[in-house]
Design a protein around this nucleic acid. Structure first.
Lengths: 156, 156
DNA sequence: GGCGTATGGTATATATATAAACAGTTGGCG
DNA sequence: CGCCAACTGTTTATATATATACCATACGCC
């Protein structure tokens, strides 16, 4: 359905390019809502799940990741990670360890509880993602990815 | 550039469909950052600009819009609009009027100051959007829109 | 070895988002 | 007419985001 109908606008969007941009924006917003709904029963948010996935799959030798590294991979300000890890530490999903080499760093790792939960959720999540994106054929998905990469590249 | 490189991931994203979904998500995030940067010199945020555009173009007879209507068109919870309009009223971009017909409603309208600012920003914004999306040809933009509509439709 | 610069994490102020509970208003229907 | 159900806007608690300023630490270079 067109954005115009979905948002119940009384006047159509003038620029095609604006409509395309708004589509990216609103689709992401809908996906986020859907994700938050999906994660809620597990006591997680989409952001927290994302952080756990990064800890599991992107840490070499399972050695954990620094908060700064996490902030780069999540495209957020590093100030953000402080409170996020605070909350997740309180929920016992992750733990901070001071780095031995460089005392500026906090190394964040999954706890046993975090690992167990992640294992449980990850598979269901993958299935859900496949289902959601299955409305597009494989070639379309690749085309979509390449178009969005072009848009990001154009932003500098 | 691929998400893998942009985020400096050490392990590639396994599922194509997940990569597509993350591309939507991260592109929206990059666009939002770009937009906020763009609006900052005018003392606006992207959300505030969006609200002003709706007030200007979607209100029939320039009669303003209720907060509930705004929340529907912005795809946010109506609780959100309260503080948003509070801030914008304080900045004198908009004003609330009690509806004559139905005392439950607040009608939100642009002030003269808001109209003047919007007029100034809107044109620059349209130019910027055209520039950003010009990395895609017109047909590609239409294809992008239709793919994103399909994704949203699949979410129910 | 010591100093300036860069980097990591934190604190604060601010903006945006949700959900849930509440009060006031409206409207339908017996 | 009166009650109930639905709707609007607000409040509160919570989660996420930014920018900025700050402190501790590390590193390069003289």
């Amino acid at each position: 359905m067109s954005l115009e109908k979905e948002l119940n606008l009384s006047v159509p969007i003038k620029l095609d390019s604006h409509e395309a941009l708004l589509n990216i924006y609103y689709t992401a917003s809908c996906l986020k809502k859907k994700a938050d709904e999906f994660f809620k029963p597990f006591g997680l948010t989409d952001v927290q799940f994302n952080l756990m996935v990064l800890l599991k799959h992107q840490a070499e030798d399972n050695g954990g990741l620094s908060q700064a590294r996490l902030s780069q991979m999540m495209l957020v300000n590093r100030a953000n990670i402080t409170s996020l890890v605070d909350r997740m530490e309180k929920a016992q999903f992750v733990e901070r360890t001071a780095s031995a080499n460089d005392r500026r760093y906090n190394i964040v790792k999954l706890t046993a509880k975090g690992q167990k939960l992640l294992k449980e959720v990850e598979e269901l999540y993958a299935r859900e993602v496949k289902k959601i994106m299955s409305v597009l054929q494989e070639l379309e998905q690749k085309k979509l990815i390449s178009m969005l990469e072009k848009v990001r590249a154009g932003l500098q």
